[in-house]
Design a protein around this nucleic acid. Structure first.
Lengths: 185, 185, 185, 185
DNA sequence: TATGAATGAGAGTTCATTCAT
DNA sequence: GATGAATGAACTCTCATTCAT
C-alpha cells in the first residue's frame, strides 16, 4: 500500500498500472489480487487507512470556538504540525485532492462524504457559537464552513500537488486572522 | 464540443470514450479526428474556449477594493449571476474542478496556471489596498488570496459537481461578509 | 508525380500518405483522385513513365557481345553516365529496389517482369555468343544473366538506397572485367 | 514466430496484421503483446534468430580462397545444400529480400548492416588473395564483393520470392565458374 | 476541373483481471 | 499463499477513398 501510494501520488492513479505496482513491490500479479480486489480497492484501502488514522488523531482535539483567538491559532498550529509531519501525508493529500476526485464512484462518494462531514461539523460549531453570541448572527454557517474548508483545501493543494514553496504555518495564521477578524481595517 | 462537454461532465473525462462522443454526435470516427487531434485536444479546446469567454466577460469588471462593502457585494452578485446563467457553465465548472485536475499534463498545467494567475491578481489587489491603509497590514496577501479562491472553488464544486442545493447568491454574500469583516462579534 | 516520387523515395511508399502528397503538391484530396485512381496508381504511373523513358533511351544501344572488351566497357560507361545524370533517377531506383518490391501485387509483378525480361534478354545474348563460340559453352546462360543483373542491382541499391559513397564508374569497370574475363573463351 | 514467418512470407509483412497472426496461432491479443513488443518486434526476433542460426552454422566453414576451384565449388555446394534444407529457410529469405527492406528503420539497418558485413568480409578475402598473387591485382575488391553478393541475392530472390523453378546447385556452379575464371590470375 | 468535409473499416496497443499450477 | 502466462474487451488513432458542392 505504501508503494502504491507513492506511485499514485507521483504519476497519478490513472497513469499507474497494476503492473507498475507489482513491479515496484516485487510481487506477482496473482499476489496482488490475493490481497486486493483490484486497482480501485487498493486506493480505497489506502484512503480508509489514512482517514482512520487522521480521525483518531484529531479526536481528542477541542476545536470549539469558546477560547481567545490566540489560543485557537495555537491549536491550529498544532494540527498543521501534525499534518506536516505525518509520514507520507503529502502523498496522501495529493491522492485525496487530485486523484480520488476523478475515479471510482464509490471512492468519490467516500471522499466527498468525508469533506461534507467536516463541513457539517464546522457548520455545527459555528451555529452553536452564534447561539452563544460569539459569532455574528447574520452569517450563514454552512457557507462559512464551506469557505473555511475550501481555503484549507486550496492551501493543501498548492502545498502537496503543485509543490509550491509555501510557509504553511504562516498561511494558517493568516487564515485564522482572516476568518475571525476579516481583512478590512 | 458541446456534446463532449456534456458527456465529460456527466461521466467524467476518463470514463468517456471517443466512441461515446461520436456516437452522441452522430459522426464517424474520422470526422472527429478531422477536427480534433485526440481526446485530450477536444478537452483543451473546450477549456480554452470557455476561459476566453469568461476572461473577456470579466474584463470590464472593476474588482478593486476601493468601494464600500455593500457595493462590492453587489458587484459579486453580478459576477455570480453571470456565471449561473452562462449556458453550460455548470458543466464547464464540473470539468475544471473534477476532470481537468487528473488528466493530461498540458491541460493540468493550463488549468493550474489559470487559478494561479487569479490568485496572483487577487494578491496584488490586496497588497495595493494594504499600502493604501484599507486592509490590515499584518495579513499575508497571498495566503489571503488562496483562502478566497479556495472558498469560491469549494462553493462551485459543491454546486456544480456535487449538485448540492445551495443558495449560491446567499453564500457569496456570506463570503463577502466573512472575508471583509470576519466571523467574531 | 515528381512530388510523389520525392516523398516515396525519402520516406518510403508505405510511410507516405496521400495527405503528404497533396500537402506537398498544394492540391486538394479530390484533385488527387481526379488524376489518379489511388496511391498505388500514382506509384504505378511513376514506374511506367520512368521505365518507358529508360526503355526508349536504351533502345538504340547495341549491347551485343561481338566487340572487344574495351569497347564494351566504354559502352557500359555511357549507360552508367546516362543513369547517373537522368533527373531523379536515384529516387526512381530507390523506389524500384526498395518500395516496389513490397507493395501492390500488380506493381510487384510489373517490376519483377521488367527485371525478368532483362535477364531473359541478357540470357539470349549469351546463348547467341555461346553458339558463335565467343563465350564458354559450359556456362549456364540464365544463371550468368542472373548474376550480372544481381550484381548491377546490388551496386545500384548501395548507391541509391544506402547512399554509399561509391565510385560507380569504377565499379562498372570492375564488373565488366570480372564477368567478361570469366565468361570469354 | 514460425506462424508469423509463414504469414509474413506469404502475404508480406505490411499486409499481415497482428490479428492475422494471433488468429493463426490461436492465442489472444494480449498473449501476443506479452511475448513481443509489437509487430516490428516479432519480425526483428525472427530475423535475429535466423541470422544467429546461420552465423553459427557457417562459422566452421573455411571460405578462404587458397584451394582449387573444384574444391571451392564443392564447398559452395555444401553451403547451398545447408540453405536449401534448413527448415523454413525459403520463407526467411523471402522476408529478408522482400519485406525487411521496406519496414522499420531498425530492422532495415540491421539487415543492411548484415549484408554490408558480408560484403566487407568477402572484400577482405579478395584483398588478401590479391596480396598473395592469387587474384588479379587490377580488380576493385569491394566492387567484386558487391557483384558476388548481388548475384547470390538475385538468385535467392528468384528462388524464394518469385518461386522460379531454378536448379540452384547448377546456378551456384556457374557463379563459381564465372567469378573465379574472371578473378583468378 | 477542383474542392475538402465526411467516412468507417481496421490498425496497433493497453491493461485490469483470472486461474491452473 | 504465491505465481505469472493467458485473456479479450476496450481503447485511441490512421488513412485511403468518396461525393455533394
Amino acid at each position: 500500500m505504501a508503494i502504491a501510494l507513492e506511485l499514485f501520488s507521483n504519476r497519478g492513479f490513472h497513469a499507474t498500472s497494476v503492473d507498475d505496482i507489482i513491479g515496484a513491490a516485487g510481487v506477482a500479479k496473482g499476489t496482488f489480487y490475493l490481497h486486493f480486489n483490484g486497482k480501485s480497492d487498493i486506493l480505497m484501502m489506502i484512503i480508509d487507512s489514512y482517514l482512520a488514522k487522521i480521525y483518531s488523531s484529531l479526536l481528542d482535539l477541542d476545536i470549539s470556538m469558546d477560547k481567545p483567538v490566540e489560543d485557537m491559532k495555537r491549536m491550529y498550529y498544532d494540527v498543521t504540525d501534525f499534518f506536516m509531519n505525518f509520514p507520507d501525508m503529502k502523498r496522501f493529500i495529493k491522492l485525496m485532492l487530485r486523484d480520488a476526485i476523478a475515479s471510482d464512484e464509490v471512492i468519490k462518494s467516500k471522499v466527498n462524504n468525508y469533506f461534507s462531514q467536516i463541513i457539517g461539523m464546522s457548520s455545527g460549531y459555528i451555529k452553536k457559537a452564534q447561539r452563544e453570541g460569539r459569532v455574528v448572527a447574520s452569517i450563514d454557517p454552512r457557507a462559512c464552513a464551506v469557505s473555511i474548508i475550501g481555503g484549507v483545501k486550496e492551501l493543501l493543494y498548492r502545498w502537496a500537488v503543485l509543490e509550491e514553496d509555501l510557509d504553511v504555518r504562516r498561511c494558517v495564521a493568516t487564515m485564522v486572522d482572516l476568518f475571525f477578524r476579516g481583512m478590512l481595517v
